[in-house]
Amino acid sequence: EADPRLIESLSQMLSMGFSDEGGWLTRLLQTKNYDIGAALDTIQY
């Protein structure tokens, strides 16, 4: 079963217009401990 923190973070990022095609966003959020800010910083640079 998916981590509730992942579901919450992923749904927030999907609502911002990101896609999780191929699961890349799920993996990114997992490596950033479900921190949306850290994930966005990684995507920006």
Rank of each mutant, 00 (worst) to 15 (best):
Glu1Cys: 11
Ala2His: 12
Ala2Met: 14
Ala2Gln: 11
Ala2Trp: 14
Asp3Glu: 09
Asp3Phe: 05
Asp3Ala: 05
Asp3Trp: 05
Asp3His: 08
Pro4Glu: 12
Pro4Ser: 12
Pro4Ile: 11
Pro4Met: 11
Arg5Trp: 07
Arg5Glu: 08
Leu6His: 07
Leu6Gly: 03
Leu6Thr: 03
Leu6Ile: 06
Ile7Val: 13
Ile7Asp: 08
Ile7Glu: 13
Glu8Gly: 05
Glu8His: 13
Ser9His: 05
Leu10His: 02
Leu10Glu: 00
Leu10Gly: 00
Leu10Gln: 00
Leu10Trp: 03
Ser11Asn: 14
Ser11Thr: 08
Gln12Glu: 12
Met13Leu: 12
Met13Ile: 07
Met13Arg: 00
Met13Gly: 01
Met13Lys: 01
Leu14Glu: 10
Leu14Lys: 11
Ser15Trp: 06
Met16Gly: 02
Met16Phe: 08
Met16Val: 04
Gly17Val: 02
Gly17Trp: 03
Gly17Ile: 02
Phe18Asp: 01
Phe18His: 04
Phe18Pro: 00
Phe18Lys: 00
Phe18Arg: 00
Asp20Gly: 02
Asp20Met: 03
Asp20Lys: 02
Asp20Glu: 03
Glu21Ile: 12
Glu21Gly: 06
Gly22Gln: 05
Gly22Ile: 04
Gly23Lys: 06
Gly23Gln: 07
Gly23Val: 01
Trp24Lys: 04
Trp24Tyr: 08
Leu25Val: 06
Leu25Met: 04
Thr26Phe: 03
Thr26His: 04
Leu28Ala: 01
Leu28Glu: 02
Leu28Pro: 02
Leu28Arg: 00
Leu29Gly: 00
Leu29Trp: 02
Gln30Pro: 01
Gln30Asp: 06
Gln30Ile: 15
Gln30Trp: 07
Thr31Phe: 14
Thr31Gln: 15
Thr31Glu: 15
Lys32Thr: 15
Lys32Pro: 01
Asn33Cys: 09
Asn33Val: 06
Asn33Ala: 08
Asn33Ile: 05
Tyr34Asn: 06
Ile36Pro: 03
Ile36Ser: 03
Gly37Pro: 11
Gly37Ala: 14
Ala38Leu: 13
Ala38Glu: 11
Ala38Ile: 09
Ala39Asn: 01
Ala39Gln: 01
Leu40Asp: 02
Leu40Cys: 07
Leu40Glu: 01
Asp41Met: 15
Asp41Ser: 11
Asp41Tyr: 14
Asp41His: 14
Asp41Glu: 15
Thr42Asp: 14
Thr42Ala: 15
Thr42Gly: 09
Ile43Glu: 02
Ile43Val: 06
Ile43Leu: 13
Ile43Tyr: 05
Gln44Ile: 14
Gln44Trp: 15
Gln44Glu: 12
Tyr45Pro: 06
Tyr45His: 14
Tyr45Lys: 10
Tyr45Glu: 14
